[in-house]
Design a protein around this nucleic acid. Structure first.
Length: 1126
RNA sequence: GGGCGUGUAGCUCAGUCGGUUAGAGCGCCGCCCUGAUAAGGCGGAGGUCGGAGGUUCAAGUCCUCCCACGCCCA
């Protein structure tokens, strides 16, 4: 920024350059938004503007009591930033969320609130672990532990922040103000200690328990995989469905007979594709509503239960011979049937202690289908999610005779040491030998495979730690009621439903780089456990020096042990798991402030929960939104946030996901440097994507360059720049300089009073939108305002600014003062959305002129958001101007229809309306209408009966309620009503139709212009254009055509706006133009409009000269012009 | 398979409590205006309102089913 601005900035005295101001600087010749933005960033840096917005004071100073110096501390507006992973570069989704996270805090900061905005980094978890696994070439538990957790974690720590500087650069360039210096990282010891505190609180509340969960396991790696890793497994297109999915796999399709106890030669036929789980079979499942049959195989006499539709399939494949149906029953009737264990290993589990049946029985399960198999499904609770849940419900034991590498253990001696899939053959052979196999086939299906080893995954129950959430459902729902969701349906439906069905949260992971679970367990007695809630507590338990534990990662604390206080001779060792990283991000409100350990921030945390505002993508419904909500509800009984904006996903222009490989989207920073960050911000928040709906980033399918953003420059920023340019151009010519007094100006002209009113309405509208957190209307509201400013206020007022210096009266002062005020107000209003251009505008309009007085006056972002001056709003005036613009539009359409250009003056426009407000508006703005339309007179009439024919239609909305079924008859009759009857209604009378008495409100009148006139009707307004062009008017039209040609030449020959010229017009002898220029008043008109100081008109009989040649109405003429000196 | 959302002009989207000529912006075509404007104005072409049923005097709007797409869950 320039020196002039720097002078005005420091210190609170301000305005030091006021006296020396020489008025506006010259506007740039070229509009280059990215260049302006870079300049603005420089200014923000030089003046520490961002720091002051974030902290409420300059670096090194104490926090002031308040900007207003009233002694009260500034109120807090609390914002929580959801931490991204720094292992990738920011994409459009981040830029969108970042923009939302910037716009709202800027608004509240401009309203006098202190808005702390700390950036956060999510450092733990699989993204970085996977990266490091690849970089180090180690995969799975065995390899990582062979390498050593210290080395592995050191690599994670070293690599996780690799892109932070890139992030910071992008965020800054986008104009997002957020505190990177005072950021939080989930791997900081302080953060992790708070996570421990959170967990210990839950432990004290009795909300933590150890349980099991079925998870996919990669047997070679010996580790459970996350959904993320499963999704990264090999993919293949399914030839049957044509869709991509897991790689296909051929598995055995085995149908096995289970002998029903107490029924001779009777079996349950059950189906499985995983023979290796049959040793662990503990039940058979049927669907309670499905009909089953007891059949007899004619050839063998074997009786079996099976679903009849499925039986047909077996018979069609000739796997089962002829059968006879004995009986039919619902699945529910089969429930409880006991059968003999298929294999002997767990036969002891048959009965409960009280002698009731425990396992090897038929159970009911809704997930059973009749798509494949027999309709009866083998259950091994430790090896499938569905089986597990059924087993839990039925009280079946959880038996998993296999380690994480998939080797059978000693409990299945026949197959001990064999790996799961390798045992399939042996198991089938054994079953065949004992006559248990009904059918054996193969089955090809998509199946998840390991992303590293390509092996099929095994699903098995694994011990994990849970937080009880189900019992919190009511409180969660009650707290959700206190949150304003944008859009509302995400909260009511999506999030609400999710809370209603919330399951206990599995919050541990069998991983390495994360916050370790602070549970120490006795090696002698697994039920003897201690949950450690702080570093100090750990040091004390382990007898370590206070301060000796400085890091909480596994490599630092896994070796810390201490004797059990409860179990003689027992040693307490930490359990191996780490936290789900969602637990960490959900702890962020406390952990970012090292709660409750940092005494300086304890109150701050407690009094700032819930946050006023957060914003993230729709995918966080079950992620961060949920974990924040669960933890704050459990810990404090409060929601974690009051207002949340949920954004949708950004897709590429072609509607597909953005893909680096396909290159179907432009580089974000390339777009910013080409078109500007303000434009990108405005584009991003202008659609339904700020209401959780997906957005296509592009103007059309083929827009891979971000042309959509260029359009936003044209629509939202250039017009503002043009308005500024206009003001400055003429102010410089006139030597007009703003002073603080412009704000007290009471302009006389309707035009000024109108735009000031319109501006206040705009401010009020913007405030409403900001405070409703509905961002998608901000830019459209601005575009409307922009249209009013440029295409009416400035267009209509243009001549007021270029009156010569001696004519400069009060009206000109009013015009400048008003336009100036409007622009400064807009700069403040739009600053949250367009932080760069609005700052630029404010600097040029206010700071450069030394009008920035008081502390923090050197940036628009440290200013107060304009408050609404209700007294300035004149709703009637705004309506009247809208009516005037409406009439102008109608009349321009008539001119278009008649092919009469606006340069050609017409004698008269008639506006007829019965509505007194319309007539009032016409009278008030007749001069504007006249000049805008180039008509010599505007005639206003009340009676339009000579101009239009009247017809009527039923007012369905009004009559429908009254008439109900009679509506149709009456509506038809109304259409046949004669004009005379309708005129009577217009006069306040009524009309009888089909026995109904109807008044004006029951009808909608339509006006059709009568033929023979150039007329148009809309609503109650009829406009008629008189197109009789007299000889005088034709000559005036020619003069205006001539002016147009001269102006174009002035412009193209590089003359300044204020230059006076010497002009020679050579026209055809005896031509029409020649005739026109014989009229003194038309010559004066030409001279005045074109600043011609010396006009000479020459006649010619004709010429071939090309130089200066023009044509008007097919008649040639030649122009010569030069700057007139002196 | 379930939950939620979306489907309206070539594209991006409005469309109120159900009310009868379904709108805007961009793009295209034509015309016009312009000494602030890189703009602007007017007009035109362009719509089975995803489909099918239903409720109703009346459905883009409400209900049911179906189709497509997206997110999440399974």
């Amino acid at each position: 920024m320039s020196d002039a601005r720097d002078q005005g900035a420091p210190g609170s005295s301000g305005g030091s350059s006021a006296g020396s101001s020489a008025g506006f600087g010259a506007p740039p010749a070229k509009f280059d938004l990215p260049a302006i933005e870079r300049d603005v960033i420089e200014g923000w840096r030089a003046n520490e503007v961002e720091y002051r917005s974030l902290h409420g004071h300059r670096p090194g100073e104490d926090a002031p009591a308040s900007p207003g110096a009233t002694g009260e501390p500034a109120p807090e507006f609390v914002f929580y930033d959801g931490p991204p992973f720094a292992t990738g570069l920011p994409h459009y989704g981040h830029l969108l969320a970042g923009t939302i996270k910037d716009v709202i805090p800027r608004y509240w900061a401009m309203n006098g609130y202190r808005v702390e905005r700390r950036f956060g980094w999510d450092c733990h978890g699989l993204p970085i672990e996977s990266l490091v696994e690849n970089e180090l070439g180690v995969h799975g538990r065995a390899e990582i532990e062979a390498l050593g957790v210290p080395k592995f974690n050191a690599a994670c720590r070293a690599g996780v922040l690799r892109f932070t500087s890139e992030w910071r650069a992008v965020v800054e360039r986008m104009g997002r103000w957020v505190d990177f210096d005072n950021d939080y990282k989930t791997m900081d010891a302080t953060f992790m200690e708070s996570v421990w505190w959170v967990f210990a609180e839950l432990w004290k509340q009795g909300r933590i328990y150890e349980g099991h969960r079925v998870q996919p396991v990669s047997p070679l790696l010996g580790t459970p995989l996350s959904n993320f890793e499963v999704a990264q497994g090999p993919q293949e297109t399914n030839p049957k469905t044509g869709k991509d999915g897991h790689k296909l796999r051929q598995d055995p399709s085995l149908t096995v007979r289970f002998a029903v106890e107490g029924e001779d030669n009777t079996y349950l036929w059950a189906w499985t594709t995983t023979p290796w789980t049959l040793p662990s079979n503990l039940a058979l499942a049927v669907h309670p509503e499905v009909e089953y049959a007891l059949i007899e195989v004619v050839e063998t006499g074997e009786k079996a239960y099976v679903e009849p539709g499925r039986l047909e399939d077996y018979q069609a494949r000739k796997r089962v011979g002829e059968t006879r149906e004995l009986r039919r029953m619902k699945g529910a009737e089969l429930v409880g049937i006991a059968y003999a264990p298929l294999l002997p290993y767990f036969a002891d589990e048959r009965l409960n202690e009280d002698g009731s049946r425990r396992a090897f029985k038929v159970v009911s399960a809704d997930y059973v289908t009749t798509d494949s198999g027999t309709g009866i499904v083998h259950q091994a609770p430790a090896f499938g999610e569905d089986d597990f849940l059924v087993g839990k419900r039925e009280g079946l034991p959880l038996i998993r005779p296999m380690d994480l590498n998939g080797y059978f253990d000693e409990r299945v001696p026949d197959f001990q040491g064999l790996r799961a899939k390798d045992a399939d053959k042996g198991i089938m052979a054994k079953l065949k030998e004992q006559g248990s196999i009904v059918d054996r086939d193969t089955y090809v299906h998509p199946y998840p495979h390991c992303y590293r080893t390509d092996e099929p995954l095994l699903y098995m129950a694994i011990s994990t730690w849970f937080m009880k959430v189900e019992e919190l459902r009511e409180q969660l729902a009650a707290n959700n009621e206190k949150i304003r969701w944008v859009p509302a349906h995400v909260g009511d439906k999506r999030f609400g439903n999710w809370l209603g069905g919330a399951r206990d949260w599995n919050l541990s992971r069998n991983r390495y780089w994360g916050t370790p679970l602070p549970i120490w367990r006795c090696d002698e007695d697994p039920s003897d456990m201690v949950c450690v809630g702080s570093i100090a507590e750990l040091e004390q338990l382990a007898g370590l020096e206070p301060g000796s534990v400085t890091d909480l990662h596994r490599e630092s604390i896994d070796d810390i042990t201490f004797p059990s206080a409860r179990t003689e001779g027992g040693t307490m060792r930490r359990v191996s798991e780490v936290f789900d990283c969602w637990f960490e991000s959900g702890s962020m409100p406390y952990a970012q402030n090292h709660y409750p350990f940092d005494p300086a921030k304890k109150d701050y945390v407690e009094s700032n929960l819930p946050a006023n505002f957060i914003a993230e993508g729709l995918d966080q419904t079950r992620g961060w939104f949920y974990t924040l909500h669960v933890l704050s509800t459990a810990l404090f009984g409060r929601p974690a946030f009051e207002n949340v904006i949920v954004n949708g996903l950004i897709l590429a222009a072609d509607g597909k996901k953005m893909s680096k490989r396909l290159k179907n989207y432009p580089d974000p920073m390339g777009v910013v440097e080409r078109f500007g960050a303000d434009a990108l911000r405005a584009y991003l928040i202008s659609g339904p994507v700020v209401r959780a709906e997906p957005m296509r980033f592009g103007r059309d399918k083929n827009d891979t360059e971000g042309l959509c953003v260029r359009e936003m420059v044209k629509a939202a920023i250039l017009p503002l720049h043009n308005a500024y340019n206009f003001l400055v151009t003429y102010a410089r010519v006139d030597g007009w300089t703003p002073t603080a007094a412009v704000w007290d100006h009471e302009p006389a002209a309707d035009l000024d009073r109108w735009i000031l009113s319109r501006t206040q309405s705009f401010v009020a509208g913007m405030r409403r939108e900001f405070e409703a957190y509905s961002l998608d209307n901000l830019v459209p509201a601005w575009l409307e305002m922009c249209d009013e400013l440029n295409n009416w206020y400035i267009r209509r007022g243009r001549r007021r600014y270029w009156k010569g210096g001696d004519e400069a009266g009060a009206d000109k002062q009013d015009a400048y003062a008003t336009l100036y005020r409007v622009l400064v107000t807009i700069a403040k209003c739009m600053a949250p959305v367009l932080p760069f251009y609005c700052e630029h505008l404010y600097q040029r309009l206010v700071v450069d002129l030394g009008l920035a007085t008081g502390a923090d006056a050197d940036s628009v972002h440290l200013q107060r958001f304009p408050s609404v001056d209700e007294g300035r709003i004149d709703a009637a005036l705004e309506r009247q101007v809208a009516l005037a613009r409406k009439v102008v539009g109608l009349a321009l359409a008539l001119r278009e229809g008649e092919r009469i250009g606006v340069r050609r003056p017409l004698p008269k426009l008639t506006v007829a309306s019965r509505d007194p407000e319309v007539r009032g508006a016409m009278a008030r703005f007749s001069e504007d209408i006249q000049t805008e339309l180039n008509v010599k007179a505007v005639e206003i009439a009340e009676d339009d009966s000579a101009l239009v024919s009247l017809s009527a239609k039923a007012n369905f909305k009004v009559l429908g309620r009254k008439l109900g079924k009679r509506m149709k008859v009456v509506a038809a009759a109304i259409q046949t009503l004669e004009a005379e009857a309708l005129r009577a209604v217009l006069e306040g009378g009524t009309v009888e139709v089909e026995g109904e008495t109807l008044g004006a409100d029951d009808l909608i009148l339509r006006r059709e212009p009568l033929p023979g006139r150039v007329a148009e009707s809309e609503g109650t307004i009829t406009v008629v254009l008189d197109t009789n062009i007299s000889a005088e008017l034709e000559q005036e039209g020619l003069a205006r055509e001539l002016i147009n040609r001269i102006q174009n030449r002035r412009k193209s020959s590089g003359l300044e706006v204020s230059d006076r010229i010497a002009l020679t017009v050579v026209c055809l002898d005896g031509g029409k133009l020649s005739g026109a220029l014989e009229r003194e008043e038309l010559r004066a008109l030409v001279e005045g409009e074109t600043l011609t100081a010396a006009l000479s008109v020459e006649q010619t009989a004709g010429s071939d000269a090309q130089d200066g040649r023009e044509e008007i109405d097919g008649e040639q003429l030649w122009l010569r012009l030069a700057r007139h000196e002196g």
